[in-house]
């Protein structure tokens, strides 16, 4: 290893902090998915199909989320319609 390589290696961000950052993101993402019921993706797909009969939209333009507030759950549906 040349002296230049040695100096360059020193400057690099420690790999552990990269690992930590990546893990925090993926773990948060997977925890979010864990709590939602299995039927949500299927529900979203069918909703898109129904809406498509009338308005041309993408899969991403429909957001389905389930929120738990105490004893009641709220199914939130957010559909972005294209500009007219």
């Amino acid at each position: 290893m040349s002296i230049l390589d040695f100096l360059r290696a020193r400057k690099k961000a420690p790999t552990a902090s990269i690992a930590k950052e990546r893990l925090q993101i993926i773990v948060a993402h997977e925890r979010g998915q864990r709590d939602e019921p299995d039927y949500l993706p299927a529900l979203q797909k069918e909703l898109v199909e129904v809406i498509r009969k009338y308005v041309n939209i993408d899969h991403e333009q429909v957001q389905v989320a389930l929120e738990n507030q105490g004893s009641c759950s709220i199914l939130e549906l957010n559909i972005t319609l294209p500009d007219r």
Partner: peptide, 17 residues
């Protein structure tokens, strides 16, 4: 390896999980 920044520390793992 933790001191060299090559390995997740105890605190890192506790924080993530």
């Amino acid at each position: 390896r933790v001191a060299r920044g090559e390995m997740l520390s105890v605190e890192d793992v506790e924080e993530i999980l």
